[in-house]
Amino acid sequence: MAHNIKNVRIQAAYAELKKLIDQGSYSRIIKTTNKIVNDDQSQPEAWQCKVVAYIQLDQFKEAINAINKAPNRQQMQFELAYSQYRLNKVAAAIDTLDSAPDKDSPRGKELRAQILYRLEQHSECYTVYRELLRTTADDMDMERTTNMAAVQVHRVELGQCPVPS
């Protein structure tokens, strides 16, 4: 009986969560996910929502804490690497990304390129962007090309490639 009441409560909280996600009410999303995980720790969706909301609020330390507590932390290694990157812990971020299950996915490569840029490994960064531009087709290609141009600026400065004519 008590089990049933708990399930109904969790279901209601998910309904609320869906509404809050549509509204983009990130602080309230965190409160609602807390309700769910207080009832049942093993709710991967609630944990993921909590982590994404923290990231959207630029609360990266809190995001990392939540990932470490989550039962599905293995599925949130990308979010962990991104949070570390935003906290400027770039060495940790690249280690995390290297062991992430989706490190070779397009989003894995996108984050890798940004971390390599921060690490000033411009030649490696350039290679990743060139591959990304070849393999992806979305409305972010202009921004990606801009990032690649930024990498080239540094490579020219460092004499790693000739000045374009």
């Binding site: 998910y14 993921q48 991104y82 940004q114 600026v153």
Partner: peptide, 23 residues
Amino acid sequence: KPLFFDLALNHIGFPSLDHKLPV
């Protein structure tokens, strides 16, 4: 300083909750 966009953030999104709502 050249412009540099954070595109990785676009890949972070909320999971689908539809299967959590049998209602």
